[in-house]
Design a binder for these strands. Sequence first.
DNA 1: CTGGGGAAGGGGCCC
DNA 2: TGGGCCCCTTCCCCA
Length: 265
Amino acid sequence: MPRSFLVKKYFTNKRPNYSELESQNAVIPECYPLAELPMRDNSSVLTYYPTALVFNMDALPAPLSPVSPVSPTRPSLTGPLDLSSSPSSSSGEDEEEGGRTSDPPSPVPPHHVYHCLHCSKTYSSPSALSRHQLTHCPGGSEISSIPSQALPRPAFHCKNCPKEYTSLGALKMHIRSHTLPCVCTTCGKAFSRPWLLRGHIRTHTGERPFSCQHCNRAFADRSNLRAHMQTHSEVKKYQCGSCSRTFSRMSLLHKHTASGCCPAS
DNA sequence: CTGGGGAAGGGGCCC
DNA sequence: TGGGCCCCTTCCCCA
């Protein structure tokens, strides 16, 4: 299941072709320009339907209790193996440095006492919970059990693509992928977010702040380090549902299944 | 063909 | 509400 359950994806899951938009935004000020919505003229990419978002709590399923420790985002068949049951094992999965991943592997932090009505997620404050629960509102499949009449329609549409969002903030974030306001001063490549640009700048500077504790190999991206760590693990994270063969990356598993190795699947 | 690294996209969460 | 960061995912390329 894609993580982007906020978005209705009508087309392919491949990256959008921004070449046309890039040509439209060829002149963008350097040095971290501000992201702004192209509101000039009457050609705003924002389509705002002032329909109030009504969150019908009565139409929602009963709260989950107790909270399941199983991650709800893991795919079932082709998803990664659940290795979280042995966090201190020698797989090296949890040995990377810093960040939230170094937190204790407790599935529910003790200060998280507000449970989502739709999934097993918990939050430390009512506001955080209510904000999260809004993500279940739009034509999302995660609440398919709720009658469609009880669900509010997505209110924010992107004019450049068919995506729909439940909040203006989410739409603004998405629009940045069209406007690409962050431009590399070295090569001129544009990005949607400053931190993406920072990661890109590392390709110019050669900075690799994430290093493997097993082989001292360094990486510019934490996710790439995480993928690399899988190569040190004897039991890979992603398992074929048919032949039980494991892979270090989901993409490799997809290649495996697409190659027809396991036609029964 | 397979495995792995590099680069990038994008939604979620916290502050 | 927005910035920053996290995490997952995907594509491309190369050995």
